Amino acid sequence: MSDDSQGGSAARPLKVDGVDVDLGGVRILRGVTFDVRPGEVFGIVGPNGAGKTTILNVIDGVVRPSAGTVRYGDVDLSRVRPHRMRDHGIGRSLQSTHYFRDLTALQLVALGELPNSVAGALRFRGHRKRREAEKAARHTAMDVLEQFGLTQYANRPLSELSSAVQKLVDIARAVVSGGELLLLDEPTSGVSGHERGAIGEALRRLRTLGRTIVLIDHDPGFVTGNCDRLMAMNFGEVLDVGLPDEVMNSDAVKRSYLGEAADIDVEVEKSS
């Protein structure tokens, strides 16, 4: 893992400006504009179909915008292919680790250090230093598992772990694969309420290490308690950007969640 991955030393802002996405003749995103400050935990909220995951897909190059730009520091991410995002210090967690359930926690986290394209993996497979690289990847993975307090799960398959621990393990993989900017797709999905505090604690630990985090989550209490700022979306457009309490209590956001300007009962999940 690079120096940036270890400490996030090169602080850079993320700027999304006027992004449209058209897929199959349907406008998925409309003029989406926002910025994420270095070292910030930035949350994206909204009902299903609002365009939240599409935003992450645009940032990490999976979806190309029809218009607008995405810049991370001096880098135009619109020109970077997905398997090259790691080179620019960007890692992403998954909504689900179901397809990796037979891997151990250590194996999954170590994947973040290995080539992240098919061509790269094929070249790596035949490389004379493959074993040395695999050993180094396992060493890095164990270091990150230790940072997350997960070493006791290192040699256990994901299928034996709770949803919360699986999420933490995958966030650890994202740290290894990227480093400075982490894109977290629904980190509390499937996690019980009392276990979500562990996810929030991991976010705070990453922030102290200098990481910048962009996350999607459906739990108003979690995002309000753990994000510095929020962006609310609906129907592919930005409704509001600002402090969590202000955004979640705006009439437009209340209507998008509930269909009317009613109070949202937000239980903040944030440890002291």
Rank of each mutant, 00 (worst) to 15 (best):
T140P: 00
V36Q: 05
V36P: 11
P115W: 02
G91W: 00
V268R: 13
L182S: 03
D35N: 15
S117F: 05
V62A: 13
R92F: 12
V191N: 09
A67K: 14
R27C: 08
N57A: 08
A11K: 15
Y257M: 05
A174Q: 05
G46H: 14
G126Y: 01
L108N: 10
R156A: 15
R211D: 00
S177T: 04
L150K: 04
G225M: 05
E160Y: 10
I44Y: 03
F148D: 06
S177C: 08
R123K: 09
E267R: 12
A202V: 10
G179I: 02
D170K: 07
G8H: 01
L106Y: 02
D251M: 01
E134K: 04
V241I: 14
V191F: 12
L203M: 13
G89R: 03
S5W: 00
R92Q: 10
V75F: 13
M233L: 15
A67E: 12
R138M: 12
G68M: 09
T33K: 03
A261F: 00
V32E: 10
G61H: 13
P115F: 00
V45K: 03
V223N: 04
M1K: 04
S192P: 06
I90S: 06
L23Y: 12
H218W: 15
L168P: 05
R205P: 00
V165L: 08
H98I: 09
G91E: 04
P157S: 07
R81A: 14
G200F: 12
D170R: 06
D217W: 10
S162A: 13
K52A: 09
L114F: 02
P157G: 07
A50S: 15
T97P: 13
L114G: 05
I264N: 00
N116I: 11
G89K: 03
G225Q: 05
H88E: 11
E113F: 03
D60V: 00
F222K: 07
L258C: 05
R156M: 14
S272H: 09
S271W: 06
L103H: 09
V165H: 14
A110S: 15
D35H: 13
V191W: 13
D265S: 08
V19A: 10
F124S: 10
N48A: 07
V45G: 01
G112L: 07
H88L: 14
I199V: 15
A202K: 10
E237P: 01
G236R: 09
R128P: 13
A137I: 06
D185K: 11
T208C: 01
N116S: 14
V19E: 10
S177H: 05
S96H: 11
R204F: 11
T140E: 13
G236D: 11
E180V: 02
G25I: 12
L94C: 02
E201A: 14
I59P: 05
I264Q: 02
E113G: 11
G43S: 03
E267M: 10
V118T: 14
A110L: 12
V238M: 05
G197I: 14
G242F: 15
V58A: 12
R156I: 10
L168G: 02
A172Y: 00
F235S: 04
G61S: 11
G210H: 01
R156S: 14
M1V: 09
G126N: 01
L168H: 04
A11N: 00
G49C: 10
T151I: 09
R207P: 00
L150E: 07
E180R: 14
E132T: 06
T104S: 15
E180F: 01
I264R: 01
P187N: 11
G24L: 10
R131A: 13
L106P: 08
L209K: 12
